[in-house]
Design a protein around this nucleic acid. Structure first.
Lengths: 233, 233
DNA sequence: ATTACTACTCACCGAGTAA
DNA sequence: TTTACTCGGTGAGTAGTAA
């Protein structure tokens, strides 16, 4: 997520770079006068000149100035920039599902059972393997309140998820669990669990993370917590 | 060519639209506060708010303002805009050849043989069929002078072209001809011919068009003429 | 013809703030 | 909490012009 880290300023330079690519400067050295670039971009000659200077300074183009114009070629670094934009856009345009959805809920104390389930070895090994972290022994319970959050939560069920397989220990069977990677309060990478037990309905979100979230994020019961759920591509 | 007709102003709004798409607003209605959008875009809350207003005015998003944020969805028109950007970019990134190359030459008078060849029925029918126009009986001869133009002209030979098949009439055989659609002086759609005869070397460009270019563009011998050669995708 | 500097203008951005 | 207004400062765009 947030793969495109250009800010709105740089974005304009990317536009200029794209226009140069459209003229073929991605594969060849092309002759482009500032006047010509200006026309293609819908700006003045002076502005186009400044863009040239900035692009060159940024290292996205290589330029030889001749009396008849500039001989311009996009550098590898410039191509990488365009590629970044292109791939991000492709992800958005061709993905069947949104790349992420954001949910918000209110923190409340559960019965502490989360810790029991999370620490079962059969689950724990799968957390490490499939989510990439060893969860803190305990879950954060969030109550979804708004209609929007509950609707979004139920849409989530239709998106592809990471599946933890069911397993047995000596005494009983532990059912399979759907989970999604997530970012909690824009800071901590963790995951949410669906259907680990059935006694919470779909208005509750169970969150796990490698660390103790309550202290890591200084949370208390009643606090609003934001969870950005990452969907598999 | 030049399929993206956004100017540098609109470009910023496209950026905002793209960020919303990244949040899933392309397929669902998502809750996005101005603060949240601001953070994702690297600007202030006020600016994000203004972007929302502008995007809504442009018709690219539909928005319901609630006390907890905005429920936003990108409209069909907004998706069309993103699609346009995406396809243009794909064309540039994945094309094997540049979409066009621009050549410049000096007008000179040939021996008038162009007219003879262009009006041979076997060629003429192919011009109409493959280029989409009935050429004015005569060619415009341009002398390429700079090293850049001659180098570019010879690179052109490696790009895919429209081929006019050879044919025979009662008396002789007319060889096959490579040609490319072209735009002359940014105004008139025409084509350039390669190897129609061999007595001009590769420093000469032969241009045809549906109209008499010398009068249409008010050209005289010695004038510089710009030719944007369009490469087949 | 070019490029690109120096001014200058103006629109955009964001702080403060109202609703 | 939100959204979005006003307004003042700043930086981006352009005209004029030199090289």
């Amino acid at each position: 997520m947030n793969s495109l880290n250009v800010d709105a300023q740089l974005w304009k330079r990317v536009f200029a770079l794209y226009k140069l690519a459209e003229m073929g400067a991605s594969s060849r050295t092309v002759k482009v006068s500032t006047e010509y670039l200006a026309e293609k971009m819908g700006t003045s000659q002076q502005t186009a000149s400044r863009y040239f200077i900035q692009l060159e300074k940024t290292g996205w183009i290589k330029r030889n100035i001749t009396p008849e114009g500039c001989l311009v070629k996009i550098t590898d670094s410039g191509m990488a920039e365009l590629k970044k934009l292109y791939s991000s856009l492709r992800l958005v345009m061709e993905a069947e599902y949104p790349p992420s959805v954001t949910l918000e809920g209110t923190l409340f104390s559960g019965l502490g059972e989360g810790a029991y389930y999370v620490t079962r070895d059969g689950y724990r090994r799968q957390f490490i393997e499939k989510l990439g972290f060893d969860p803190y022994p305990g879950t954060l319970n969030l109550k979804l309140t708004t209609e929007y959050d509950m609707k979004t939560r139920s849409e989530l069920e239709t998106y592809p998820s990471i599946i933890l397989e069911e397993f047995k220990d000596e005494s009983r069977t532990f059912g399979s669990v759907k989970c999604y990677s997530a970012i909690i309060n824009n800071k901590v990478k963790g995951a949410i669990l669906c259907a680990i037990r059935s006694h919470y309905n779909s208005s509750v979100l169970e969150v796990i993370a490698p660390t103790f979230l309550r202290s890591r994020l200084k949370l208390k019961d009643g606090n609003k917590v934001k969870v950005e759920v990452l969907i598999l591509p």
